[in-house]
Design a protein around this nucleic acid. Structure first.
Lengths: 184, 184
DNA sequence: AATTTTTGATACTGGTCGGTATCAATGGGG
DNA sequence: CCCCATTGATACCGACCAGTATCAAAAATT
């Protein structure tokens, strides 16, 4: 079992349940490797969780970033965001990143730092998107770009958390559309 | 140490950190009692957490319910809700109920059931409030009472979770006012 | 082909968890 | 004053945790 495959197993396990509920022992069992082997690859549990969230960012969050930097207009992008959060089958069990962010205090220092970095990058991504829409003239109003970005970020987090808690996707969609209606 | 005082200690400990991060051992130490004594009073950890959330509902959530059944008009009540979520010093470390709801899968069956009951009651409270405001004529629009209640409930939960994660109260207030602006 | 180095698995450490058996102290009713 | 019942504390149980020492097999180097 290559370290890469082990990392995939770990990421999926963390993602589908909760990082705090998946032990190193369990991951070794799932991946079919021994603990010393895992520790030689990743150094510590902190190293593993950090690598897992890194891979998640590369593999999943990049898609969201691509949505934001696409050439759609404001309503189109918001619709794409809603589609992603409420209907993408990958989000059926929630978002690994927001799960980790919610339980940040239970993670190691490395992983915590990475979480903060990704969070800041996401916020910057939302802000860049809003700034572009404002420049393009299809978003006006008194709301600042910074507040809009934070609001957008938190509402996406909320919707993905709701998905993860088992809420009906249609309900998630309705609530999120309502929340994002402040941008119209 | 009376069981009542022990329960207060437990509720506060759960509230100020996180139910999943406070062990029975730690509570015994804080309360200055022995484990068998605690188990004779509450039966199990599940019994203790259930009693804690019960007490929290009686002592804290009842205030929110009172807000909703008060005689203020729509904007006044929403303002009171925002004040509570973003400025009440008791909410500095978040809301015990929403912390438990977020980590429901880690709790015992008794407590889980109580969480669901309280959640349903809260939703009903929000719905009754919105229905009354609609009847009184100071809330109109296409939004259904049910969806409005769910939205309100989730936005309050989000704001309180943000408080608990250390977000600046002024920021929480700004985001929540934005979210609740859909009711105007 | 012989030796060295890297890999893997077993089994262990010390610690914490929820929960309990055992037993001493205490306190009220006869 | 004595007995009995309830209370409390100590010490323990088995399970699981993150992390590691030990040692055998395999692979790479000489």
């Amino acid at each position: 079992m290559s370290p890469d495959a082990v990392l995939n197993t770990a990421m999926t396990a963390y993602w589908h349940s909760d990082p705090a509920d998946v032990s190193v022992n369990a991951i070794c069992q799932m991946a079919g490797i021994s603990k010393p082997s895992l520790y030689r690859s990743f150094g510590s549990e902190d190293g593993l969780t950090c690598a897992a969230v890194d891979r998640y960012a590369d593999q999943v969050l990049s898609d969201v970033f691509a949505l934001l930097t696409g050439d759609k207009d404001m309503p189109g992008t918001l619709r794409a965001l809603v589609d992603f959060a409420s209907d993408d089958p990958r989000m059926e069990t929630g978002c690994l990143f927001y799960k980790m962010r919610a339980g940040k205090h239970r993670l190691g220092p490395q992983t915590r730092k990475r979480i903060d970095e990704i969070d800041a990058a996401a916020l910057a991504g939302f802000a860049a998107f809003l700034q572009a829409r404002r420049d393009a003239g299809d978003w006006s109003g008194p709301m600042s770009v910074e507040q809009g970005a934070r609001y957008l970020s938190e509402q996406v987090a909320l919707a993905l958390t709701q998905r993860g808690s088992g809420m009906d996707p249609a309900t998630v969609r309705g609530l999120m559309e309502l929340a994002l209606s402040v941008f119209r």
